[in-house]
């Protein structure tokens, strides 16, 4: 029992710590990259290159007055920020992030929920939980803009969940399972799944942008129309939780893209067996982090490039474009593997 529990706790603590730090620094990255894309410098006063800016932001959020507006529904109003942050964090439980390490004869997987066979299904389930926080925030904060924002968000997230599934299923078919580790192994042996499943990759990418409420699909927030969307009425630490949830979602989404389509921690031409066990594990984790960091950059890059879609365009893209394309591609992949057998 202890043999299982202690490594698990260590893994959880380390992963959560790294994830939350990464979230903090993703906000800095967002501000820095947006500035550089617009020929500005961005925050550069707090510490070298503004590196302590997230700390300053955190302190600011902590000391800000926490305002609860009149006539909000207290229970769900207080529950909503947690409901967005927690699903974003627990998604990381099923994401394997490196080669296994062997210490004193036992091998440890770098994976919190070891050998979870339904990892992908869990991911889909938990990622759709995040929308509850948005619904609760919109319904309970007694503000029409929040309500409109949350309505849009629900519609968008629920719709794009289908496209997300359709992007994942071809991968599951070609691997023969929902186990994320096996998906990475399959790509380690052969080629990264972007190449054979490029259509699925595009569908998944678009869907995951909509799912994380990032631009060009940030209609739930839509500053120019809805003030701040579902989190208009939140301030202080509660707002910070929404904020962190959003960025944690972004990191999780990037990790997912990396695992499903870009070979997880695998480098096609370098095999980790040539290094020692520990060195291999460290290297694999670093490679994984680098890939995730690239996709986080990609998320930010896209945000500061594309304008927001109109609402009907978002729905049209989903139901009239992605859905047929996804089904068609799924059919083709299914037929291919059926005929192969």
């Amino acid at each position: 029992m202890v043999n299982i529990l202690i490594p698990a706790i260590i893994k959880i603590v380390v992963v959560l710590g790294v994830l939350l730090t990464a979230v903090a620094y993703t906000t800095l990255a967002e501000r820095k990259i947006s500035a550089y894309l617009q020929d500005r410098y961005g925050p550069n006063r707090v510490g070298p290159f503004g590196l302590f800016q997230p700390v300053a932001d955190g302190i600011k959020f902590f000391f800000k007055e926490d305002i609860t507006p009149k006539r909000v529904f207290r229970v769900t109003y207080y529950l909503a920020p947690m409901c967005t942050l927690i699903p974003a964090l627990i998604t990381f439980a099923v994401i394997p992030f490196g080669e296994s390490v062997s210490l004193n004869g036992t091998s440890y997987r770098l994976w919190i929920a070891e050998n979870m066979d339904l990892g992908l299904v869990y991911l889909l389930a938990v990622s759709s939980l995040g929308v509850y926080g948005i619904i609760l925030a919109g319904l309970s904060s007694n503000n029409k803009y929040s309500l409109l924002g949350s309505l849009r968000s629900v519609n968008q997230v629920v719709s794009y969940e289908i496209a997300l599934g359709l992007g994942i299923l071809p991968i599951a078919i070609s691997c023969g399972g929902f186990n994320l580790d096996e998906i990475v192994r399959a790509q380690e042996k052969g080629i990264w799944f972007v190449v054979p499943h490029f259509v699925a990759f595009l569908i998944f990418l678009v869907a995951i942008f909509a799912e994380t409420n990032r631009l060009p699909f940030d209609l739930p927030e839509g500053e120019s129309e809805l003030v701040g969307g579902y989190h208009t009425e939140y301030s202080g630490l509660r707002f910070a939780m929404f904020f962190m949830g959003e960025y944690a979602n972004m990191i999780t989404a990037s990790a997912l893209i990396v695992i499903l389509f870009f070979g997880g921690w695998s480098l096609t031409f370098i095999k980790y067996e040539i290094f020692g066990s520990i060195l291999a594990a460290i290297l694999s984790v670093l490679v994984f982090c680098a890939k995730v960091a690239f996709f986080v950059f990609f998320f930010i890059w896209v945000r500061w490039t594309l304008p927001r879609f109109r609402y009907d365009q978002v729905m049209n893209l989903m139901w009239a474009r992605l859905l047929p394309a996804g089904f068609l591609y799924l059919l083709i992949v299914g037929l291919f593997y059926f005929l192969l057998e």
């Binding site: 990259i33 550089y36 617009q38 020929d39 500005r40 410098y41």
Partner: peptide
């Protein structure tokens, strides 16, 4: 634009 001269 990422590598352009900054105007700030």
């Amino acid at each position: 634009h990422l590598f352009k001269k900054k105007v700030t």
